[in-house]
Amino acid sequence: MEYLEHIVLVFISIVLINNLVFTKFLGCCPYLGVSGRLDMAFGMGLAVTFVTTLAGTLTWLIDHLFLLGTALEVTRYVCFILVIAGAVQLVEMYLRKFFPTLYEAFGIFLPLITTNCVILGLCLFLNLWQVNDILMAVVLSFGAGIGFTMAICIMAGIRENLALADIPECLQGAPITLITAGLLTLAFMGFAGMIK
């Protein structure tokens, strides 16, 4: 029971308190680039969640089964990026077959998930935080994806309304998005220290 409680706390912590977008700046490119419309943002978030969960778990396994403590450790980054690229390919094929409209809407952004820092960043953090438990690795990966989805959806919601606002000309587009993102991180700092 205590273990279950711990898992739930870890999940809440990665989604709200240590949200990778707000505290570690991971995934800023899609966060700023694809957050123009809410439905696109949500789809992107789901795709990223799926890939992160898959890639996080797989890279954790590879790291612990083959790499840790052996001379192969130097190939870690190459292995990780291969796993991620493979997972993205899988999602791409699945979407093209079953959701062709969504596939077309994503366009170039889908292959770009490979270079989404949330995913590689999470795989590296799993190693850095010394997560020793497979269930924990799965929960953290899934939570990171959910956290990203939440962040990008909040941002898209704000930007849809921002389009109607009267913004000084030189701040339109990217600058105002960055400033909004700054204010959002300020809001999320309120959660800091809630859970150790």
Binding site: F22, P175, L178, A181
Partner: peptide, 13 residues
Amino acid sequence: PVGAFVTLGLMLG
């Protein structure tokens, strides 16, 4: 983080 976002936003502006 807030400093980073806002400073870069203003720089772009």
